[in-house]
Write a protein that binds this DNA or RNA. Structure first.
Lengths: 212, 212
DNA sequence: TAGATTGTTAATCGATTAACAATC
DNA sequence: TAGATTGTTAATCGATTAACAATC
């Protein structure tokens, strides 16, 4: 299910591109091509969300976009905060891509006074303001971009103050309190796996998918 | 297979933490706990790479680390370049986490003269120096952090100059030339899926895994 | 009508989990 | 020895792919 939701984001992006190119409808093979999946998956995804096409002309892009927005309705109304404004955190704080889906970082936090700026957009507060700001803003999603050793503690603090979903960039496994969803983005892991694929001799490329 | 390689990176991280805590050996359940997987997977991974434990005492951490290094040997000797030094690119350029596995960005590129700095560490060159620098350095891995519309073109240029693996941060599906491996990191997708999970009422949490 | 494309079902595939015999 | 833990095999699970009947 989570895979379907993720693909929905990809579909939306592709559909917007197609729409701004003046195209009104897509077939499943075309959308699959544009979003990097297969026609079967596209049809199954849409069918499972009740998004219907025409047996002849494919799917109406406007309808799909409306439908996807409706499905992700509850998602984009949630506030997002960021904890840790170091190298990576700073970049995430100003990352434009998040807002595509309507999500936006409303506040950030850091322990280092040199990094705080309560008048910034978004504002960067000292960590001890977390409880207050969280109570005011009602954010339910957090991004963790703190040093490894601080990540678990940060998660627990966030959970204690009502955060229900966390995107964690610290390359450590976090133990999530009940009711809190943690998703990890491990950049080293991603780069390393690409490097591994690239290091394979062409003759061994069957290893990519198959087991052992 | 790619999953195994990814987990290898996670195991290494956990093993280093355990080792620096003075621990000499781990059992599969313990390592699983620390790296966020299951004991079965740990044992199967190790067994598939020929990493052996003792039927009684578990796995010797030093041996595992040596073994993992050997497996990832060819991986870490490859040079990495970065294309696109905007908001996200700048952060990746100075991201410490990559070097854990021995990978390091040796040079970066940007079309904007205001962002170039050939004397930086790592240096940031204008894009038209790509061919020359790539020929000199022999890098085979690239990170793409350019605006969406420039990503496909960038990929093709990189492929033409010998890049064999790409980590792409642009949220668009890229068509990879033969022999080039592309892996996508889509930050919006990740955040959106966490937000979706968090938006579920507790009663619907069975949707997380199961189909429809 | 004939043809294209959906929506859905069945087949395939791979990955994870469970279980347990081997053994240190 | 008895007990703990590996290494491996079999069972389960879910996701993807293939195929095709329904139908616009």
């Amino acid at each position: 299910m989570i895979d379907r939701i993720q693909r929905l984001t990809a579909y939306r992006r592709s559909l917007e591109l197609l729409q701004s190119a003046g195209i009104l409808s897509v077939t499943s093979p075309l959308l699959a091509e544009s979003s990097g999946t297969s026609a079967s998956v596209v049809r199954k995804d849409f069918s499972s969300f009740g998004l219907q096409g025409k047996r002849r002309g494919g799917y109406a892009i406007a309808d799909l976009l409306t439908g996807i927005s409706a499905i992700l309705e509850g998602v984009s109304r949630q506030g997002v905060i960021l904890v840790g404004c170091g190298n990576l955190g700073q970049a995430l704080l100003h990352y434009k891509g998040f807002s595509e889906g309507g999500l936006a970082i409303t506040a950030a936090f850091d322990t280092d006074p040199a990094r705080t700026n309560p008048r910034g957009r978004p504002p960067v507060h000292p960590l001890d303001k977390l409880e207050r700001i969280l109570a005011e803003s009602g954010a339910s999603i957090a991004i963790i971009a703190v040093p490894d050793h601080a990540a678990q503690k940060t998660l627990e603090t966030l959970a204690a103050h009502g955060i229900r979903g966390v995107l964690n960039f610290a390359p450590v496994h976090l133990h999530a309190p009940a009711g809190v969803h943690v998703r990890n983005v491990n950049l080293e892991m991603e780069l390393e796996s690409v490097a591994w694929l690239a290091s394979l001799p062409r003759s061994a490329e069957h290893l990519e998918r198959k087991d052992s």
